Amino acid sequence: MTETEAIARANAPRTRASLAADFRALGVQAGDVLMVHVSLSNLGWVAGGPVAVIQALQDAVTPAGTLVMPTFTLHLTDPADWRRFAVPQDWWATIRAEMPAFDPALTPSRGVGRTAELLRTWPDARRSNHPHSSFAAWGRHAEFITADHPLTFSLGEGSPLARVYDLNGRVLLLGTENNTSLHLAEVRAGKQATVPFSGPILVDGERRWVTFDECDYHEKAFPPVKAAFQESGAVTIGNVGSATAKLMSQRALVDFAWQWWTAGTLPPDSP
């Protein structure tokens, strides 16, 4: 969506104050741990862009709360597996040898939007150390959520997703249906194959190309689970700016999806 189209979607400019008010009206509370996914263009025209969005989220959760966003870097994978941006085969060896190692402070995210990329560099934010599946976090629990991110099964146990689960956090979708927390349920269900992933990391200050086990994540399986969970009444839906926003318990979502994929039935105490 162009900036002109975003202006056309709004009857007034969205601001830090108006967005914070919308977050509170949706049910975001002081002290919340929020896993946030944002489509900035769907919010309408925002005065201050992603800066205002993050400030509004901070106003809503307060310093007692925590914001978490994915800052993925799947362009640091093996070029032999690239499909969307395929490169010639005779480039592969050079890319594997020369691609800079993942560095939480330096490596930009890709494909997760401007708001998540800004949170990555926000003062006092933390970022987990994973070459493909890092998360950025700001607030009270930022260090706990991002510390010791395991290399293998990067969206499973020990990951920032699991830490948000441990803290009984919530998921906030702003103008998007992307919901990374479902990958935690995938890993826990154990239904997916294991595949090798590789990429450049720093080991004791030296660059190394490493290969490790990863879950063969399968987002095409998500829509039926999302629909059933929403139909159960467990999702609060409202407007934030021009966008449809959805707020839900991450723990309830993950438990629901785990039950769906392991037993094929809904949890007996589902909302």
Results as ranks from 00 to 15, higher is better:
178 N>L: 13
237 I>G: 06
167 L>Q: 07
156 G>N: 09
146 T>M: 01
134 S>N: 00
205 G>T: 09
110 R>I: 15
110 R>S: 15
235 V>H: 01
119 L>A: 03
155 L>E: 13
139 G>K: 01
166 D>Y: 07
195 V>G: 11
223 P>L: 12
224 P>W: 00
199 G>F: 07
191 K>M: 14
188 R>T: 09
234 A>L: 11
131 P>I: 05
232 S>P: 11
138 W>Q: 04
239 N>P: 04
214 E>C: 09
205 G>M: 06
159 S>V: 12
135 F>I: 06
159 S>C: 12
117 E>L: 13
121 T>C: 12
202 L>G: 12
227 A>C: 09
231 E>Y: 08
238 G>K: 08
217 Y>Q: 11
132 H>Y: 02
158 G>F: 05
206 E>Y: 00
233 G>E: 08
207 R>I: 07
219 E>P: 15
174 L>D: 01
128 S>P: 02
245 A>E: 02
166 D>R: 05
245 A>H: 02
148 D>G: 02
136 A>M: 08
216 D>L: 14
181 S>W: 00
135 F>Y: 15
213 D>G: 03
163 R>G: 05
208 R>M: 08
152 T>F: 06
130 H>D: 04
139 G>A: 07
231 E>I: 10
231 E>F: 06
235 V>W: 02
242 S>L: 05
153 F>N: 13
200 P>M: 06
187 V>A: 13
146 T>S: 08
179 N>M: 15
221 A>D: 15
125 A>S: 11
158 G>E: 07
198 S>W: 01
178 N>H: 14
212 F>K: 07
190 G>Q: 06
157 E>H: 14
150 P>T: 02
147 A>E: 11
110 R>K: 14
173 L>H: 00
143 E>M: 08
168 N>G: 11
178 N>S: 13
219 E>F: 15
220 K>N: 13
144 F>R: 13
233 G>W: 05
193 A>K: 11
182 L>T: 12
191 K>A: 12
181 S>L: 04
123 P>F: 01
170 R>D: 03
124 D>Y: 10
225 V>K: 04
173 L>D: 03
240 V>Y: 03
180 T>K: 00
118 L>I: 10
131 P>Q: 03
234 A>P: 10
118 L>N: 06
151 L>Y: 08
191 K>T: 11
133 S>C: 15
123 P>C: 08
172 L>F: 00
206 E>R: 09
117 E>R: 14
118 L>C: 12
106 L>T: 13
116 A>T: 03
244 T>P: 01
179 N>V: 14
138 W>Y: 10
108 P>Y: 05
143 E>F: 01
172 L>T: 01
240 V>L: 05
169 G>D: 09
194 T>W: 00
135 F>K: 00
218 H>I: 04
164 V>W: 02
113 G>V: 06
105 A>W: 00
165 Y>T: 05
160 P>W: 03
132 H>G: 04
150 P>V: 05
121 T>I: 12
134 S>V: 09
151 L>E: 11
191 K>E: 12
181 S>D: 10
192 Q>V: 12
197 F>A: 14
240 V>F: 07
229 F>D: 04
185 A>S: 09
127 R>N: 07
187 V>K: 03
132 H>K: 04
155 L>W: 11
163 R>A: 13
